[in-house]
């Protein structure tokens, strides 16, 4: 505690200046590089776009996560536009100054990859889980093949494939944004895991539920959407959130293919001669950021489980 706060130096231009002031932690490195940690190399003049995206994110998440929000129904419809608006804000074009995605970095990069992965892996995972149980042989084989292939390969390998090998498969001259490739790979990777988590939930649904739905004349998709999936998803919540958290933390692997997430920024900062030797401070800071996000997700999943559970108890 003393080291963390009381004996810590919060300002200064280098490690030597810190130790001259106090014997504890040197948080000045974080202070100086906070913008780098947050925005990466996003041009300073355009950072308002990142901030605005973050505000939009908050406003999108609130109606999705919480039931008792006024006008939730309309808010949920508007939420569909969020990915497009944010992509436009961050990448630019159509009246905004274009920003190359290799300038993305820091927490902003983590959030972009994490939220894209989380947002898309759930629906894709649901489709794969249903596909795996499909009576249509072709769909079933495709789903099983996809899931088993992706699960059988480390994420790092897929990221390498994304960063290098895809270029060989694409016709010459066609470039394909690196970040977009990473987003696709991370999403597909998480989808395969998600599919298996949801399949576990699907298998826990008693046969009688399917029969009751069938006997009413419900179509397959209606029966799935209204009866089977709500129950299967509820059972799968711990596994789903587990996968989300895993995916979120795995975003740090992008450092390997040269994208600078907070961990990458941290390493770069430590390479600066003024700040060498402050790895504890830097990594602690990054760890705290990840812990807050992941713990938040875990708490929300608890809240969701409790909310859905009380409905069935006497």
């Amino acid at each position: 505690m003393d080291w963390l706060f009381l004996d810590a130096a919060f300002t200064g231009g280098s490690r030597d200046e810190c130790s001259a002031k106090a014997g504890g932690a040197c948080w000045a490195v974080i202070g100086e590089r906070l913008n780098l940690f947050t925005y990466g190399f996003y041009p300073a003049a355009e950072r308002w776009r990142v901030n605005l995206s973050f505000v939009l994110l908050i406003f999108t998440l609130i109606p999705i996560l919480f039931e008792k929000v006024p006008y939730r129904k309309y808010a949920l419809h508007i939420a569909v536009a969020f990915p497009f608006v944010t992509a436009w804000l961050l990448v630019g074009g159509l009246g905004l100054t274009p920003v190359e995605t290799d300038q993305f970095g820091g927490f902003m990069l983590t959030l972009v990859i994490g939220i894209t992965g989380i947002g898309f892996s759930l629906p894709i995972g649901i489709l794969l889980a249903l596909g795996r149980q499909s009576r249509l042989r072709a769909i079933q084989i495709f789903s099983i093949g996809f899931i088993e292939f992706i699960r059988g390969v480390p994420l790092i390998t897929l990221l390498f494939v994304a960063s290098t090998m895809l270029n060989y498969f694409l016709p010459p001259g066609v470039t394909f944004d690196l970040l977009l490739r990473v987003l696709i790979m991370v999403t597909l990777f998480a989808s395969a895991y998600m599919a298996e988590v949801i399949r576990g939930g699907l298998q826990a649904i008693p046969k009688g539920q399917f029969e009751a739905a069938d006997s009413m004349g419900l179509h397959y998709w209606s029966a799935m959407r209204l009866i089977v999936l709500p129950q299967a998803m509820k059972i799968s919540i711990p596994g789903i959130v587990n996968t989300f958290i895993g995916l979120y933390k795995d975003t740090t692997l992008v450092i390997i293919i040269g994208l600078l997430d907070p961990l990458g920024i941290g390493r770069a900062s430590l390479a600066d001669t003024r700040w060498t030797g402050l790895s504890t401070e830097v990594y602690l800071f990054v760890a705290i950021f990840f812990f807050i996000s992941c713990f938040g997700m875990a708490r929300y999943s608890q809240h969701l489980e409790n909310k859905l559970e009380t409905e069935h108890k006497r």
Binding site: P206, G208, Q209, E211, A212, D214, S215, M216, G217, H219, I227, P230, Q231, K234, L308, E311, H312
Partner: peptide, 20 residues
């Protein structure tokens, strides 16, 4: 099949109500 099921109701031994 679906048009027949619309006209035919079924009550099961284990009720099969939708718990959610």
């Amino acid at each position: 099949i679906e048009s027949i099921r619309r006209e035919v109701g079924m009550v099961f031994q284990h009720f099969n109500l939708f718990p959610h």
